[in-house]
Design a protein around this nucleic acid. Sequence first.
RNA 1: GCCCCCAUCGUCUAGCGGCCUAGGACACCGCCCUUUCACGGCGAAGGCACCGGUUCAAAUCCGGUUGGGGGUACCA
Length: 489
Amino acid sequence: MSTVRVRFAPSPTGYLHVGGARTALFNWLFARHHKGVFVLRIEDTDLARSTEQATQVILDALEYLGLDWDEGPNKDGDYGPYYQSQRLDIYKEYANKLMDLGRAYECYCTPEELDERRKEQIKAGFPTRYDQKCSELTDEEKAAFRAEGRVPTVRFKAEGDGETIVPDLIRGNVRFENTQVDDFVIFKSDGMPTYNFAVVVDDALMKITHVIRGEDHLSNTPKQIQIYQALGFDVPIFAHIPMILGSDKSLLSKRHGATSVMQFSEEGYMATAMVNYLSLLGWGYDDSQTIFSVPELIEKFSLERVSKNPAVFDLQKLEWMNGIYIRDLSLEEFYDIAVPFWQKAGFYPEEPNTEEKEYALRILAEIQNRIKFLVDVIDFAKYFFTDDYEYNEQVVESILDKPGIEDILEYIYDALESVPEFTEEHIKPLFKEGLEKFDVKMGGLIQPIRVALTGSNISPGIYDVLELLGKERVLDRIKRTLILMKERG
RNA sequence: GCCCCCAUCGUCUAGCGGCCUAGGACACCGCCCUUUCACGGCGAAGGCACCGGUUCAAAUCCGGUUGGGGGUACCA
């Protein structure tokens, strides 16, 4: 069998959203699994909405996910160019060919006229289709329309009767009555081809063997198949993958919160988690496995196991998975990820020395299974690096603003000041004494210290915090907290 | 309006006629661990949309109903 060639063909009208990313992923996995070729093609024929900037954003997102393409932007291949806007001559050539074959004709109807006739069809209960008003125009009639200032579109002359069958790897043979397929526009009056035409010419010329795309394209596929056939192209194998929905089961959109892949990146999701989660949206391997490495996905992915029904995007599961991947990081890997966040936040040196790195690694070991998102490395580590951290007001109120807390802190201060070695081994006995002295439970003693040292009621184990911070900073912070409490009254 | 697709716990899914008193994961609830927050461990609850067929036997096959999604553009 010949080499598998698949493509991802986004239109650069915004960011790369979750649905597009999943489509790209499935194509990429399929290509890598079959040692085939993954083509990236930019469908920028919508002049009004496409931007160069959006193209770059999409490339960035694919890069973040690790989905590299073999042919496409910045990666020349034998079937370029890979921007549709640079392939106009090609589309014109094939449109002309269709006209020569009698399978396409100029249409001078205006959008307004078409709209009106369409409404009448709906009212009468007929399928909405072009009435072929312009299909037999004489040269004189065309000239007359042009004299009126009308600019024609080009329409494909669709099959009159019979049916068109879409062979789909996921859904089987899907049949469409040809009466449902009308003479649709293949060239707009602005000189650009329409999607349904350009996609066929490109997929055919780029020798795409498998078209893997969202189910929203299924209904348009008979149109495309008719063009393949009219032009004598081989029809590729189709695989329409299920849609991704929001929690209310409507199509996933901005209404449902973050849907941009890069936004997830900024919020601290790991690309590996993202890829793993996305792979499970409409695909599953067996009844027990949910965590897959990328090589594993490549090995195990198959279109046969893609499900037919739409999948709801479950943020909670993604979050859980992100945690799995964060905890799976080696300390060195975790360090490499955390440092840029810390540097950006301004409390970690640009060129840390060995000692500083050792210290950082100890902190990371403590926070690794506590954070949910990568950005959390900032808040969870900040007080280990700087005295300039916030006291959480609510926490201060509920823990420090209570009678007797000052006495406890003063006792702890004295106790810690006298401790010979600042380690859990030596500190613990002193705390035990405090328990009896103040008749409190461990929490009653430790929580006030925690707040004094971190500004928060959430932190690693208190002995770890004490050892990490060291005697001097611990005493300073307790003293500082006592002053703060006096000010508050 | 017309056409197409889909239908197993709240969510993602396993199941491709008997192994199913339907399995796993997330979420939820309870318990354990515990100085907080997490991590971790254990356990509970929760589903084959409905109605007809076919069959000795149906979550699995067929038809219908209902529900959801998509398409129907000079968007892609």
